[in-house]
Each structure stands twice: as structure tokens, then as C-alpha cells.
Amino acid sequence: MAITKKESEYRVTFRRTSIVEADQGRHDADWHRDHAERVAYYTDDREDALGSAKSLSDNMVRVMARLAEQGANR
């Protein structure tokens, strides 16, 4: 996860490397960048940003585990 702060606003999104790995080569770099912005969450509350990052991270862990399982079953 990436949490950045610009002025008084926090931006929470997936790191592009995570998006690329989960995407498994289906899309190009422009799509990965755009996807990171589409799923970005903005807030002015630090605790909200942290909680959202943890929740999104948990979701990515589940997605990656499912992809690994699918790969093992092939």
C-alpha cells in the first residue's frame, strides 16, 4: 500500500508493483497507473487513511492468495 500526503489530504492506493503482479500481464503500464488512481481513496483523516490502507491491503492479500491457488491448480 502507498499512503501519501499532499497538503492536508491523504491518498491511499495500491503500489503499482502490486497491481502489476495481480494483473498477471493482462494490461499495459498506462492501465496500471490509471487503475491505481481509480482505486485511490482520499481523506483528510490520518486514522481513516491508515484503516483504509489496512483494509485494502487485506483485500490484496486475499486476491494474491487466490491467484497463487489458481496457478497451483493448473
Results as ranks from 00 to 15, higher is better:
Ala2Asp: 09
Ala2Leu: 10
Ile3Tyr: 11
Thr4Met: 03
Lys6Val: 01
Lys6Phe: 01
Glu7Pro: 10
Glu7Tyr: 12
Glu7Leu: 05
Ser8Leu: 04
Ser8Val: 03
Glu9Tyr: 10
Glu9His: 03
Glu9Thr: 15
Tyr10Met: 00
Val12Gly: 00
Val12His: 00
Thr13Ile: 00
Thr13Glu: 04
Thr13Trp: 04
Phe14His: 03
Phe14Pro: 04
Arg15Gln: 14
Arg16Asn: 15
Arg16Gln: 15
Thr17Trp: 09
Thr17Cys: 09
Thr17Gln: 05
Thr17Val: 08
Ser18Cys: 13
Ser18Trp: 10
Ile19Gln: 06
Ile19Cys: 05
Ile19Leu: 13
Ile19Tyr: 09
Val20Phe: 08
Val20His: 08
Glu21Asp: 05
Glu21Gly: 10
Glu21Ile: 07
Glu21Val: 04
Ala22Glu: 13
Ala22His: 05
Asp23Phe: 12
Asp23Asn: 07
Asp23Leu: 11
Gln24Trp: 10
Gln24Met: 14
Gln24Cys: 14
Arg26Met: 11
Arg26Glu: 07
His27Trp: 07
His27Ile: 00
Ala29Lys: 13
Asp30Cys: 06
Asp30Pro: 04
Asp30Asn: 15
His32Trp: 10
His32Leu: 07
His35Lys: 10
His35Pro: 03
Ala36His: 03
Ala36Ser: 14
Ala36Thr: 00
Val39Ala: 08
Ala40Pro: 01
Tyr41Asp: 02
Tyr42Ile: 05
Asp44Val: 07
Asp44Thr: 14
Asp45His: 03
Asp45Gln: 07
Asp45Gly: 09
Asp45Val: 13
Asp45Arg: 11
Arg46Pro: 00
Glu47Ile: 08
Glu47Tyr: 14
Ala49Ile: 00
Ala49Glu: 00
Ala49Gln: 01
Leu50Glu: 12
Gly51Pro: 01
Ser52Glu: 10
Ser52Tyr: 06
Ala53Trp: 00
Lys54His: 15
Lys54Cys: 09
Leu56Trp: 08
Leu56Val: 05
Ser57Val: 04
Ser57Leu: 06
Asp58Ile: 03
Asp58Pro: 01
Asp58Thr: 11
Asn59Ser: 13
Asn59Leu: 15
Asn59Ile: 12
Asn59Phe: 06
Met60Trp: 11
Val61Asn: 04
Val63Lys: 02
Met64Ala: 10
Met64Val: 08
Met64Asp: 05
Met64Gly: 09
Ala65Thr: 06
Ala65Phe: 01
Ala65Trp: 03
Arg66Gln: 13
Arg66Phe: 12
Arg66Thr: 09
Ala68Asn: 13
Ala68His: 11
Ala68Asp: 14
Ala68Gln: 13
Glu69Phe: 11
Glu69Gln: 15
Glu69Trp: 11
Glu69Cys: 15
Glu69Val: 11
Gln70Val: 03
Gln70Trp: 07
Gln70Tyr: 03
Gln70Met: 11
Gly71Lys: 09
Ala72Cys: 02
Asn73Phe: 01
Asn73Cys: 02
Arg74Trp: 12
Arg74Leu: 15
